[in-house]
Nucleic acid binder design. Structure first.
Lengths: 213, 213
DNA sequence: TAGATTGTTAATCGATTAACAATC
DNA sequence: TAGATTGTTAATCGATTAACAATC
């Protein structure tokens, strides 16, 4: 066991990637892997991997390396992928429906239990395998089902308002796709802002500089 | 003018965010802003902002601050948002269609000129405002229209193969949504991997730790 | 001129890399 | 035991912050 100096911030964002690669290796039937082999695969340094992993405990074995399947489960546990937190999507436009259909919530510690939209036309139709409900039903639904995580696929203008309402309904974590930097003043609330537009602009910037260096 | 020590890597990823906030301020009719005011708005330090911006030139004025609209254009130019690079989407499933309909390519230096899918059932139908074509037409289409940027919304298994094919057709930049870490060995190719699953797991991790610290 | 705020250098902090003793 | 590879400390590198002279 480490005395847990804590993993670096960049390290935290590497954890899901470790998890993904280890899952792949496990699926391929690989039993053990050294930090060196994994570093080659993932384009990191072996040192970095050992530092990252050792923050959570000594998962490896000298002279052997890491047991793939064991490490996979450990990281899954660290990430909370073994949980099953009730999750709702707010906004059933193109993006909300794509996320409902496209994201595998279950393997990431989440269970999709509801999709909501303000447009009555959409209510009753399906987003993935989930029936779309009207946002008026949020209060009743949340009191009954106690979801913890909300995915926000709504226009910028409504985001803060809806988020505040959901906080008051007990939601604890927000995956925010609106073009708005959500930051919630309550402590004990987690927010992950996804700005696809920013990501595209980063690519544009890189394209702009190709062949320059 | 700076002698361009170069912006930090995290700094590069902050540029689109600066652009977004300045665009908002401009829309609100704000004329000037100091690094201090902007830092409060964006949750950064004033020093950081001055460092980031000064890498590209002295856009500010002592005693005054920055001209919002001028700085907005400068950053847009740096990012390449003023260009109009031909862009195609490969894969017209839920995600591909959501991106076609949801992302404003034009304001980010990209012009969506084609959407392709391997499923003939989809061909001829619309993704956003763009007709879906069969991937068999890629060669002819690319030779005629010379797209530079490809958005990959295809299954993991096909990603590397399709990417290689597109590289040989002259594509220069890849916005990759497949569950696969695309890395292209050719130099002079830019890749931006978007792993929505990793993003969700990061949120799960944060949710797991709420109230812990 | 006085006040404000940048541009820029120096100091600090944090993350990554290198090195190696511990140990399987 | 010999070889391999971790866990962990120390050295390096890079990014952020602080400070302040330049200047509008």
């Amino acid at each position: 066991m480490s005395k847990s100096k804590g993993i670096s911030n960049p390290g935290i964002r590497r954890l899901p990637r470790y998890y993904r690669f280890l899952g792949e290796l496990k699926k391929q039937g690989v039993e053990r892997i050294s930090s060196r082999e994994l570093s080659a695969l993932m384009n990191l340094t072996a040192s970095q991997i050992r530092q990252d992993l050792n923050c959570f405990g000594g998962f490896g074995q000298q002279g052997y390396g890491y047991n793939v399947s064991g490490l996979y489960s450990e990281i899954g546990r660290i990430l909370g992928a073994d949980k099953s937190r009730g999750t709702i999507i707010i906004g059933a436009g193109n993006l909300g429906r794509a996320i409902a259909a496209h994201i595998n919530f279950d393997t990431r510690g989440c269970r999709l239990i509801g999709v909501f939209d303000a447009d009555r036309q959409l209510c009753g139709t399906l987003a993935g395998k989930t029936v779309i409900r009207h946002t008026d039903e949020l209060e009743v639904f949340c009191n009954e089902n106690k979801p913890e995580i909300a995915v926000l696929c709504i226009p910028k203008a409504n985001t803060q308002e809806i988020a505040d309402r959901l906080v008051s309904l007990g939601l604890k974590a927000f995956w925010n796709f609106s073009h708005y930097d959500l930051s919630i003043d309550h402590e004990d609330i987690a927010v992950e802002n996804v700005h696809l537009g920013d990501s595209l602009l980063t690519l544009t910037y890189a394209a702009e500089r190709l062949g320059t260096e």
